[in-house]
Design a protein around this nucleic acid. Sequence first.
DNA 1: ACATAGCCGACTGATTAAGTAGGAATTAGG
DNA 2: CCTAATTCCTACTTAATCAGTCGGCTATGT
Lengths: 125, 125
Amino acid sequence: MRLSARTQYALRAVSELAAAPPGPVPAERIALAQHIPRRFLDNILLQLRRAGIVHSLRGPDGGYWLARPAADITLADVIDVVEGRPEYQADYPGVAQPLAEVWNALREHEERLLTEITFAQIVRP
Amino acid sequence: MRLSARTQYALRAVSELAAAPPGPVPAERIALAQHIPRRFLDNILLQLRRAGIVHSLRGPDGGYWLARPAADITLADVIDVVEGRPEYQADYPGVAQPLAEVWNALREHEERLLTEITFAQIVRP
DNA sequence: ACATAGCCGACTGATTAAGTAGGAATTAGG
DNA sequence: CCTAATTCCTACTTAATCAGTCGGCTATGT
């Protein structure tokens, strides 16, 4: 379960939005709260917006907020956007073939967890 | 659960050794059976030998074999050698803190599976 | 108008991944 | 001893990915 810094930042940013009271949260606030490099965060939030995870508003009192209720956004939703769907295929010849089933089992377990946990659960443990 | 090509090759090579009758198996044979670039495989087998996973013998009729019974070598044993132990640490401020526990849960499940499955199980499913 | 935000593509420097190259050392058989 | 098979070892190369950074533009509320 390797997650890039970018992905972890994205998850933390969304957590921050999920925990915030309604209304736009400026990127600056998120950056400070989660110790994320400001410019990099911009970049990530842009990606999340394009994917429809968050909405945004420019100008004073602008910022970002969740496009859906936190209970409807799973960890997998965010990871998929930032990390991209992993193409998995196994060409394991002969005796090594059973290895592929181990990866499948692991991947499924991972998938199940990540699609079950929402940000509502994260911010209210 | 991201595994580098190197790691997957290592696991497949060990599987091949686990499935072979007693006696040295030349790298060439493994490379052919598993479609692994020959030189690269050399490299990997060297690492496995240094880690004490396999033994080797040079010269004609030389090759590699498992240092221990296949039932005593787990997937984790090989992965740890090739991939190196992952340093995990989480500095998840504030509301994002619960994320860390999700990673822990995933990592533990992964760990459990990988340390339980041996190459004896892989080659005799 | 002005300050405060987000929007956007391009760029950079460091690290890792995936092999390759060239040859030296060892072993068995004749 | 000679030869062929095979492992051993260091170093190199090439491409991709990662983790940001930069410069400037655009929208919005007061």
